[in-house]
């Protein structure tokens, strides 16, 4: 059937039929234990199983950063990681950024610098930035570009995002003593 071109790469999870694996991990501070298909990506696990729809897919092949989450302190693209690889991991998604109903400084700065338009890329940018600032509270512009250069945004032209990241870093240092 080399005539047949399947128009759909896999964008939603397809059951592999393999025996499920028990996975335990922490997501946004919550202890989770679930049986998962060993072929399921972490992105699909977060969205389909945990119903955390904030994390987006915009390419499914590790090229756009929309699916970025923080796993054990590092930003990763969850579309190219298997859920089972997150065994025992600490995961933060965009839903875990605000605490006690209060937006984080980073979220506030994304709003006040208008670092988002359609908002589809925003969760990915927030998570990439969160990981950056956790590891480096005072990044240079070049360091910001180096890290966020892996996230695509078609709306903002990136400059407002850059401004928001700078301000958030500055405010976190001042207000949270980072």
């Amino acid at each position: 059937m080399d005539n047949v071109k399947d128009c759909s790469m896999v964008t939603e999870h397809i059951e592999s039929g393999k025996r499920k694996v028990t996975l335990s991990l922490t997501v946004n501070g919550r202890q989770i234990v679930r049986d998962v298909d060993p072929n399921m990506t972490l992105l699909h696990f977060l969205r389909d199983n945990l119903k955390l729809f904030g994390t987006k897919e915009a390419c499914g092949e590790g090229e756009c950063g929309a699916c970025t989450i923080i796993m054990n302190g590092q930003a990763v693209t969850s579309c190219i990681i298997l859920a089972v690889e997150a065994e025992g991991a600490e995961i933060t998604t965009v839903e875990g950024l605000a605490e006690d109903g209060k937006l984080s400084i980073l979220q506030e700065e994304f709003i006040s610098q208008d670092a988002l338009q359609c908002g589809f890329c925003t969760p990915g940018f927030l998570m990439s930035t969160r990981a950056l600032l956790d590891n480096n509270p005072n990044p240079t512009d070049a360091e910001i570009v180096e890290v966020l250069g892996g996230n695509l945004c078609r709306c903002t032209g990136y400059i407002p995002i850059m401004l928001a990241v700078r301000r958030a870093a500055e405010r976190e240092r001042k207000e949270l003593g980072r």
Binding site: K56, L116, G119
Partner: peptide, 19 residues
């Protein structure tokens, strides 16, 4: 002014057709 839809978009609450 800040955009009205910003809060939902930075908290992951904004629902797209994809979701």
């Amino acid at each position: 002014y800040d955009r009205k839809d910003a809060r939902e978009k930075v908290t992951g609450q904004a629902v797209f057709t994809y979701d």
